[in-house]
């Protein structure tokens, strides 16, 4: 399936990826080729086949609702780009 350039821009927006306009055509070409590769799947009859999410069909394990980790905020925030008083800083969202 071939994508239009506007679709590529829309996907990039959904992904929160800045893509230069000069590169849109290359992405359009490569993404269209990949989608063409995977389009083979549509011809397969899967009407009675259950989707497979885990190779061993395991289910999500649950654990007791108990505290197992101690708070390590300072340790983890050491690698953050910007913090203040224990919070992560981003540009103002609400005026």
């Amino acid at each position: 399936m071939a994508l239009e350039q506007d679709q590529v821009r829309n996907i990039a927006e959904l992904c929160r990826l800045q893509i230069d306009d000069a590169q849109i055509a290359a992405y359009q070409n490569n993404l269209s080729n990949i989608l063409e590769l995977v389009d083979q799947l549509s011809a397969v009859d899967t009407s009675d086949v259950a989707p497979m999410a885990h190779p061993l069909d395991a289910v999500q394990r649950l654990r007791a609702d108990q505290v197992t980790e101690s708070n390590q905020r300072e340790h983890f925030q050491q690698i953050a780009p910007a913090t203040e008083r224990g919070h992560y800083l981003v540009p103002r969202v609400v005026e």
Binding site: T46, V49, A50, P51
Partner: peptide, 15 residues
């Protein structure tokens, strides 16, 4: 459904 679910179904056929 057309992509992810379909792929998971074919994945089971491969398994």
């Amino acid at each position: 459904d057309a992509y992810y679910k379909k792929a998971q179904q074919v994945r089971r056929l491969i398994k």
